[in-house]
Design a protein around this nucleic acid. Structure first.
Lengths: 212, 212
DNA sequence: TAGATTGTTAATCGATTAACAATC
DNA sequence: TAGATTGTTAATCGATTAACAATC
């Protein structure tokens, strides 16, 4: 049973989805149990770290046995909030917005895309996997009518912050921002700024001979 | 002048592209100088950390003055290897592969996309911004003919590792993997595994009430 | 010069690793 | 039971923050 919600370090939090991924894989492969040692080999972490990580949520293992893969998988699923469903929208129906919408994994995990929004009249009215592309002008009306939990922003840099402010005003609780600028907010909303180019820059950095 | 290539911690390395982004912005806004204190306010870091970070590459500032924005920008550009150009290919011409190819920022920063590769006959022969989509079958011939520095893998999970092995065998030195599995290699190649769904999972995690 | 702000050393904090008693 | 492996405490390591002398 998970501990009552407490402080979890950023480092631990960022590792949880990786555990989830590896456990899902093992579960699909029919592996029933795993020790922290075996898991550490697979994932490139230390066994000690794995046990510490899991124990920040409560003990999920059993001495002398290890962890039951399926049980641990389901616990982490709950921890990550993947036992719930989320109403999502995508702002910006360009390649990236379409890529996110088309990625069936999200739907499977409970992230349901209700609509895309765009400013481009040639895209408005079209649909992706039966999900309509609506006029960005109509977004406030849409948010009035529907509960939206998470919005992915795939819009140009200069529009990102004002879109985010609007979304937050209308009750969106999670912002997944792909615009190449950091979106911020003073409210309780959860914001994740993804910078694909930052990522690419770490590749060229390391290719330049700086070692870690 | 940058110190000779030494050990740089992962944490510092991951912050460099962010500095680059903020400095570019300031430079474009015509800001000439900035102190670590001002920069810390903008970026949400501490002034002390910023000075430490820059000093792992050598001092770029001046006592009593701060940092010259343009100079610092250019130093970090060099550190990140963005003063060079890179020949790139994209494996998988679906939405994500197209999104990366279309993102003009990469071209501007010296990441030149030479070709996309796909298995889908309906895509092969088409082109994105005049960049051809080629048959994945022809990739070895292509790599024999052209120097390719970086490859983005936007292929399905099960194909990712064997594609990567192939690319590495033919001299590709950087792998930017978007397939939902961790690609590994025993060689010197630089690998960056991007997991967008891991990212989304941290959003649902935090929306579930776990605080950091 | 006086004021400002860096570069750098020292102190603190937090995260990772090691060790081992508890226990399945 | 004996062996294995967790949960957890203690030790270590590294990263961040604080402090301040150097110096523009």
């Amino acid at each position: 049973m998970a501990k009552s919600k407490g402080r979890v370090s950023d480092a631990v939090m960022r590792r949880m989805p990786k555990y989830y991924r590896y456990l899902k894989e093992m579960r699909d492969d029919g592996i029933e149990r795993i020790s922290s040692r075996e898991l550490s080999d697979k994932m490139g972490l230390t066994a000690s770290q794995i046990r510490q990580d899991f124990n920040s949520f409560g003990g999920f293992g059993q001495q002398g046995y290890g962890y039951n893969v399926n049980e641990l998988y389901e616990e982490i699923q709950k921890i990550l909030g993947l036992d719930k469903t989320y109403n999502c929208i995508v702002i910006g129906a360009g390649n990236l917005g379409q890529a996110l919408t088309n990625y069936s994994g999200f739907e499977r995990e409970g992230f349901h895309v209700m609509a895309l929004f765009d400013i481009n009249p040639r895209l408005i009215g079209m649909s992706i996997r039966d999900i309509p592309i609506l006029d960005i002008e109509d977004i406030e009306g849409f948010l009035d009518q529907h509960r939206v939990d998470i919005a992915a922003i795939c819009a140009p840099k200069d529009a990102a912050q004002s879109i985010a402010d609007d979304l937050i005003k209308y009750g969106v609780r999670g912002i997944w921002n792909f615009a190449p600028t950091d979106v911020t907010s003073s409210s309780e909303v959860v914001i994740e700024n993804v910078h694909l180019s930052d990522n690419l820059h770490t590749i060229s950095f390391r290719m330049g001979g700086y070692s870690l």
